[in-house]
């Protein structure tokens, strides 16, 4: 019997040594999809950060003589100067797409951070306090959830001036209700457990319990799945750009390039297609990572592994 317990204890210790967050991340990393997504995403991010720095081409420079050059190997008159072709004003499509990707990533990431912060705070407060606080906060959440996010976003941005902080704020503030709901249900389950009661008896303040005990446990599983929302927000950003309510031209964004390219669709299909492909590659890499993380999380919480 002693032998058994001697073997068992270190094994259990090992499992304890890894936090749930680490186990989820490790489980995801083991899947093929996550690695493919990760490499594609890293490549896109590096390209978006460094290519505009290295290359001497200006994404805004108009060169009428080189207008409507097709992408490499895709028709007459292509050249290596513009591997992805040029638009109706002779601006380089590769550079424009990459600058668009920069804005898209920037807005996507910060928006999700805002969403997560607001949602987690509201959920934490509602779940921990319960009672009247909970009822009021959740009714506000329901109300916000029932306004279609995009109507709210275009209503505000259509009337106010769409600057980058405004876009981030509008998207972030309209996307938090889902997080608030999930956070609330997780916190409600956790706060009934022994360690919270123990901390209360030891005299820990509510704030301490909320932010130092509950938040570190409840946030990571939600934050992992937020990767999927980065992709969703990038789509929203490009939709706004497409409707003319995103970052304003001449700054290129996926949305406004595609909206422009739509007019030249029949004779210059690449103007609308090239940024779409960049956007699609980034999105699918994010979604593969997010889906792998989500599955890994479900497995860890389901008790397997």
């Amino acid at each position: 019997m002693t032998n058994v317990s001697n073997i068992d204890v270190p094994a259990a210790d090992n499992a304890q040594a890894q936090t749930i967050a680490q186990r989820v991340a490790l489980g995801a990393w083991r899947s093929y999809e996550f690695r493919v997504g990760f490499f594609v995403f890293t490549a896109m991010v590096l390209l978006a950060i460094f290519w505009p720095m290295i290359s001497s081409i200006d994404p805004l420079k108009i060169n009428i003589r080189a207008k409507l050059t097709p992408p490499a190997f895709m028709g007459e008159g292509w050249s290596w100067t513009h591997p992805m072709g040029t638009d109706q004003l002779g601006r380089d499509m590769l550079m424009r797409s990459l600058v668009g990707l920069r804005y898209s990533l920037l807005i996507g990431l910060t928006t999700v951070v805002v969403m997560l912060a607001v949602g987690a705070l509201v959920g934490l407060l509602a779940g921990y306090r319960g009672g009247l606080t909970d009822t009021i906060l959740m009714r506000i959440t329901d109300a916000q959830l029932s306004i279609p996010m995009i109507i709210l976003a275009i209503a505000i941005l259509g009337v106010a001036r769409p600057t980058i902080p405004a876009i981030i704020l509008v998207l972030g503030l309209s996307g938090w209700p889902v997080y608030a709901r999930v956070m609330r249900s997780v916190v409600m389950a956790e706060r009934k457990r022994e360690f919270v009661r123990g901390a209360t008896i030891l005299g820990a303040s509510d704030l301490r319990i909320m932010f130092l005990l509950l938040l570190p446990i409840c946030l990571p599983p939600i934050a992992f799945v937020a990767v999927l929302d980065i992709a969703r927000m990038m789509i929203f950003e490009s939709v706004l750009g497409f409707l003319g309510l995103g970052v304003q031209p001449p700054t290129p964004t996926f949305g406004n390039i595609i909206a422009d390219g739509r007019k030249y669709l029949v004779n210059a299909w690449w103007i609308a297609t090239v940024p779409g492909i960049f956007l699609f590659l980034t999105l699918i890499s994010l979604n593969l990572m997010g889906a792998a993380l989500e599955r890994s999380r479900n497995r860890v919480h389901g008790g397997e592994v």
Binding site: E33, A231, I235, S238, V239, F242, F254, G255, I258, R262, L265, V266, W269, A272, T273, G276, L279, F280, L283, I284, L286, N287, L288, A291, R295
Partner: peptide, 26 residues
């Protein structure tokens, strides 16, 4: 199911609309 879901969700609707309109109707 996983790949199909990831593929579909990564297609921006406005872009897909334009491409499908180009291919299927034009």
């Amino acid at each position: 199911a996983l790949y199909m879901g990831s593929l579909f969700i990564s297609l921006p609707n406005f872009w897909l609309g334009i491409v499908l309109a180009l291919v299927l109707s034009v």
